[in-house]
């Protein structure tokens, strides 16, 4: 869907940022289509947070340019600030103020007044299930409640672009699932453009319509999660044979098919990689039926994002992320 600023809500063009000897960004470029959820995925130190800081006008790049919601982050920082909601990695809520006071302050800074501000705050408290805690100071909130309040604060003024920097880091599984549901709802109902960073592969896979994998300050791959995974050329087709089946016959039959590779047998299970799992399954079943090999089950598994990450960076995601404490 084209947004009010044409097709793209965010354009980053060859961003470079160094901190002393350390290169955080080495010429990063990408475009985020308006109205989509876009994920920046990479291990700690990949340059995700630096990118966020530049796009939210907190930090200036050494070189390169970026526009957010149609405004240049360097030349029109105040216009950018009016158009965006920012949820930083650290909370950003005032622990000595109540949830309601935090939201009202955020709204008033954006020029909201009187009953309009108050009813918007009530609406957000209701939506994030914080109404009963609204008049307690934030210091007494659980981690999950604080994170919900953080997101609510980023939304008070109805931004065009929402930045979520590691929105679920430190949350327990239940709070994380709640947050995922809320983020999915945001993009579906509010036509928001959401840029989120994460170092959780499953989060990126689950939430983002488009992904950019960053490593050491540059983009290594981009596309939809499915596109990235299909670049690996090959879904896994797993065939479980019935006990009376002839294993050798089945293996030879599958190997002889066009488009199957890496056929392996383990127990009564035959695995192979195929270009397209969905169309391969009927063909495999037809071949095995012709050979009169009884089949117990066939499953297709798409490659996971960590396979993608491994392929593009040469490191497995788990190892790359281990520096994180």
């Amino acid at each position: 869907m084209p947004g009010p600023f044409g097709e793209s809500a965010i354009k980053a063009d060859t961003l470079v940022k160094t901190y002393g000897e350390v290169t955080a960004l080495a010429g990063l470029s990408f475009t985020v289509p308006a109205g989509s959820v876009f994920g920046l995925l990479g291990p700690n130190g990949a340059g995700k947070s630096t990118t966020m800081k530049i796009l939210t006008t907190l930090s200036r790049p050494d070189s390169g340019t970026a526009t957010v919601a149609g405004h240049d982050v360097l030349r029109e920082p105040n216009e950018v600030r009016r158009a965006i909601g920012v949820v930083t990695q650290r909370s950003g809520t005032d622990p000595q103020a109540t949830g309601r006071e935090n939201l009202l302050l955020a709204g008033r800074i954006h020029g909201m007044r009187g009953t309009a501000a108050r009813s918007r705050v009530d609406e957000l408290l209701e939506r994030f299930d914080l109404t009963s805690a609204a008049d307690r100071v934030v210091r007494t909130y659980s981690g999950g409640m604080q994170r919900k309040l953080d997101v609510a604060m980023g939304l008070v003024h109805g931004p065009v672009v929402l930045f979520l920097d590691e929105p679920t880091t430190g949350l327990d599984p239940q709070a994380r699932a709640d947050m995922w549901a809320e983020i999915a709802r945001l993009s579906a109902q509010e036509r928001l453009t959401v840029l989120l960073t994460t170092h959780y592969l499953e989060e990126a896979d689950h939430l983002a319509e488009r992904l950019l994998i960053v490593d050491r300050g540059t983009a290594v791959a981009s596309g939809t999660p499915d596109q990235l995974k299909s670049e690996l050329r090959g879904d896994a087709v797993v065939i479980d044979l019935a006990p009376e089946a002839d294993l050798g016959l089945a293996e030879r039959a599958v190997e002889a098919m066009s488009g199957t590779h890496e056929v392996t047998v383990e127990g009564r299970t035959i695995r192979s990689r195929v270009d397209n799992g969905a169309s391969a399954v009927p063909a495999v079943l037809a071949v095995l039926e012709r050979e009169a090999v009884p089949v117990a089950a066939v499953t297709v598994a798409r490659p996971a994002l960590d396979d993608v990450y491994l392929r593009h960076t040469g490191r497995s995601f788990a190892i790359a992320g281990e520096v994180r404490v």
Binding site: T56, T57, L58, N78, R81, R82, I84, V86, T88, Q89, R90, S91, G92, T93, D94, P95, A106, I109, H110, G111, M153
Partner: peptide
């Protein structure tokens, strides 16, 4: 600054 309030404010039109 430690809490993140500073960054949130600086990224707003305050």
């Amino acid at each position: 600054m430690d809490r993140g309030v500073m960054d949130r404010m600086l990224a707003s039109p305050i």
